[in-house]
Every structure is written in structure tokens, then in C-alpha cells.
């Protein structure tokens, strides 16, 4: 499903080069639940941006579903993100003053799908992500953190993506809500979704079945969990 070969990413700031990723290679198979763990500055966010087609590597190759993403142009990347990748962000990134339903439907605009179908699909995804029905018409900023993250998960799922990418999804949540959100990721995994999770907390990583540790832009450890 995901195949990274010798990925490097170099940021240039004036004359100073920062090597955020240094020759990183790994693969993720369909249906896996992988946690990428590392301290801040380890390069895990850079890796996740490349996997999420939000950024392109300086060197190396990245294949998603058999297609070489590292060679794609902007519009192809947009289409890939829409069709193959579902994002869950640390800060939720919901549209403010906008209903839950419309937030979930956001990736479907310009898809040619009728409004009825979109809403039906969005409702189904919200139920799937475990949000109470009475909140569907609420504005996103009236929800609690846990509820917002469920909306974000429903949004990530709406296009039936090949992988779900979660960037510190529990970073803004308390411990109890974190566990609930992680449980829902585990459930998604059981239903057959491929999940890549980025975190710096060991406890969060233990919910995954495979843990890749990154430090200074290199893979330090890659092991099955438990």
C-alpha cells in the first residue's frame, strides 16, 4: 500500500541545510495500524506530510497504491489527497461557524455528487465515527474536543480513503478523551482501514500494532507491538 524508498527531505534556510529525513525506507501493507513515534524535531511530521501528499521529498521515491506520488504535479496531488487519503489533525481543523454535516461534506464539493447523496453519506460516516445524531446540525465550534475529533474522523473517512493519516490526533485532548479517540481508531482498524498515526507519546503508540521509531531523520526501530 505505502512504499517509501530512500526518502530524504532537506530544508534550506539561507545557507543552513536541515536534513529532516535521511534515507528513510519502509512499507506499510493494507490493513495495518502503524504508529510513527519520535520526539519533536525527529522528522516524523515531515514524513507524515510526504506520506499525506502534502509535501514532496527532496530525494527518494514514494509509492501509494502503486502510483509514484513523488513525481506528481499539484493537481494530481490534490486529487490523490481527496481520493486516497483521509487526514485527522491535532488541531481538528474544522471550519468554524459551519455545521458538523457541512464540515464532513467538505471533501465532496466539486465531486458532482448530489446534495442528498452527500448528506446521506456524511450522516453515515458521522454515525460510523460515533458522534451522537443530535449534534449533526450543530456548529463545529459548539462541540467538545472529543466530539470535534470524531467529526474530523468522519470527514477523513467520507471518500473511503486507502489510508487514514492521523497527526497527533490526541495532542489537544485530555487523557480520558484520548483513550476514547484511540479506541475508535482501533475499531476502524478492525473494520479493515489502513491507519498511520504520528505521535510522540508512547502510550498513544501502544494502541497500534506496529511502531516505527524515528530519531534525527532516520528510522531507529521498526517493530511489532506486543
Amino acid at each position: 500500500m505505502i512504499s517509501c524508498k530512500n526518502l530524504t527531505k532537506i530544508y534550506k534556510n539561507g545557507d543552513i541545510e536541515t536534513r529532516a529525513l535521511d534515507d528513510v525506507s519502509f512499507t506499510v501493507e493494507k490493513g495495518e495500524f502503524v504508529a510513527i513515534i519520535g520526539p519533536s524535531g525527529s522528522g516524523k511530521s515531515t514524513l507524515m506530510h510526504i506520506i499525506g501528499a502534502l509535501d514532496t521529498p527532496t530525494g527518494g521515491k514514494y509509492f501509494l497504491d502503486g502510483k509514484e506520488v513523488s513525481k506528481m504535479k499539484e493537481n494530481e496531488l490534490s486529487d490523490l489527497r481527496r481520493e486516497k487519503i483521509g487526514f485527522v489533525f491535532q488541531s481538528f481543523n474544522l471550519l468554524k461557524r459551519t455545521t458538523v454535516l457541512r464540515n464532513v461534506m467538505l471533501p465532496l464539493i466539486y465531486s458532482g455528487m448530489s446534495m442528498k447523496e452527500r448528506e446521506k453519506k456524511a450522516r453515515a460516516m458521522l454515525e460510523y465515527a460515533g458522534l451522537e445524531k443530535k449534534l449533526f446540525k450543530n456548529l463545529s465550534n459548539q462541540l467538545s474536543g472529543g466530539q470535534m475529533q470524531r467529526v474530523a474522523i468522519a470527514r477523513a473517512l467520507i471518500n473511503d480513503p486507502a489510508i487514514i493519516l492521523a497527526d497527533e490526533p490526541t495532542g489537544n485532548l485530555d487523557t480520558k478523551t484520548s483513550r476514547l479517540v484511540m479506541k475508535s481508531f482501533q475499531e476502524l482498524h478492525k473494520k479493515g482501514h489502513t491507519i498511520v498515526l504520528i505521535t510522540h507519546e508512547d502510550e498513544v503508540a501502544t494502541f497500534a500494532e506496529r511502531i516505527i521509531s524515528i530519531r534525527d531523520g532516520k528510522i531507529e526501530k521498526d517493530e511489532k507491538n506486543g
Partner: peptide, 9 residues
């Protein structure tokens, strides 16, 4: 966000 969810520029 719009770009991240795959809406074209």
C-alpha cells in the same frame, strides 16, 4: 484545510 482535503487550487 481545503487544500489538504484535496480541493484543487
Amino acid at each position: 484545510l481545503r487544500k489538504a482535503v484535496g480541493i484543487r487550487r
